[in-house]
């Protein structure tokens, strides 16, 4: 789950906390001074200067002391800046893997409509980077991904070794999903035919579908 101020503050030493305080002030300033909406469609011909808080967002890793603290700081910055759809897309598409993770994890808190947030989730689900996959199958995906895309996301987690613990509301969405059950069984059969072990998580997910069927 996300680290909000008390938790994230505990992760930071004194210089890092001072750095984050300054960064949050800049993000709060940005929240009060929304840039013109040209970024919503296409970037302008000449690039405007990068907002100060976005440079902080990019450099959080070397100021916060640990990957976990940097991730929490980045999420806080996104929330504090009240990042909208254009900003989230810009920071995601121009971001490192760590920055992209932060955008994906922050999506449920940014009041970004599925029409704008889902393309970022879908982009991450197309990668084979397990850090991005794990961040993509969080609460935003649970709330907004359609059934087909969500089932493929679960299967891709199994395929790439992302623990299904990362999948938000797995039990809720798997309940009674016979198509997911079929896909899991087929994947298990494919693994077995190849003489390869079936991931334990697959049995867990399958149980969530079948147990629901038995109880319904």
């Amino acid at each position: 789950m996300l680290n909000l101020p008390p938790e994230s503050a505990a992760l930071l030493d004194e210089p890092a906390r001072a750095w984050l305080d300054a960064a949050l002030l800049e993000a709060a300033h940005a929240a009060r001074h929304t840039p013109p909406p040209h970024t919503a469609t296409a970037p302008p011909a000449a690039s405007p200067p990068v907002p100060a808080w976005e440079l902080r967002f990019a450099s959080a890793g070397r100021h916060c002391g640990s990957d976990l603290a940097a991730e929490a700081a980045r999420i806080l910055l996104l929330r504090t800046a009240r990042t909208g759809a254009p900003g989230a897309a810009r920071l995601y598409h121009r971001g490192t893997a760590a920055e992209r993770r932060a955008v994906l994890l922050a999506l449920p808190f940014l009041e970004i409509a599925p029409a704008h947030g889902l393309p970022l989730i879908q982009d991450a689900l197309r990668t084979n980077d397990t850090r991005l996959l794990a961040a993509a199958v969080g609460p935003y995906a649970a709330a907004h991904l359609d059934a087909h895309a969500w089932r493929h996301a679960v299967l891709k987690c199994l395929f790439t070794g992302v623990p299904l613990d990362a999948v938000a509301r797995l039990a809720h969405r798997a309940r009674g999903d016979t198509e997911l059950a079929r896909m899991l069984e087929d994947y298990a059969a494919e693994r077995t035919a190849a003489g390869r072990p079936v991931p334990a998580d697959l049995h867990h997910a399958l149980a969530l579908t079948t147990a629901a069927k038995e109880s319904s």
Partner: peptide, 18 residues
């Protein structure tokens, strides 16, 4: 070295061709 998310077995690259 930051290791990626814990993996059950192998990794996505080793298994990507399966």
């Amino acid at each position: 070295l930051t290791q990626p998310e814990p993996l059950h077995e192998g990794n996505s690259i080793l298994r990507g061709g399966e």
